[in-house]
Simulated assay, not measured.
Amino acid sequence: MSLPQPLIRFAVQDDDDALSRLDRDTWSYLHAVKPPEQPPYPPFFTERFGPRDHLVAELDGRVVGYIRLGRPTSLAANAHVSQVQGLAVADSARGRGLGRTLLRAAVEQARQQGSRRITLRVLGHNTPARKLYEAEGFVIEGVLPGEFLLDGAYVDDVLMGQELHPGARRSAAARDS
Rank of each mutant, 00 (worst) to 15 (best):
A173H: 07
G86A: 09
A32T: 15
G86H: 07
A110Q: 09
G86C: 08
H125Y: 05
D14T: 15
A77T: 13
V89P: 00
V89I: 03
P128C: 08
G161L: 06
R170P: 02
L7Q: 08
Y66K: 12
M1L: 08
H31M: 07
R100Q: 09
G65P: 00
I8K: 04
A129Q: 05
I140R: 01
V84L: 15
S92D: 01
E58L: 01
A32V: 14
L22T: 00
R130I: 09
A18H: 00
T119H: 04
L120H: 02
D25V: 14
S28Y: 10
G50I: 14
Q109V: 04
D25C: 15
A153H: 15
P42Y: 08
G95R: 09
P40I: 09
L7E: 05
D157Y: 11
P6E: 04
G61K: 07
V64F: 03
I140N: 00
L159F: 03
L150N: 10
R130H: 03
F138P: 00
V143A: 05
R68L: 11
P145W: 08
R9A: 12
A129H: 07
V63M: 06
Q112E: 13
R116M: 04
Q162M: 15
L30I: 14
E108G: 08
A172R: 14
M1R: 12
R62A: 09
V56E: 01
Y41C: 09
A110T: 07
R170I: 08
D23N: 13
D151H: 15
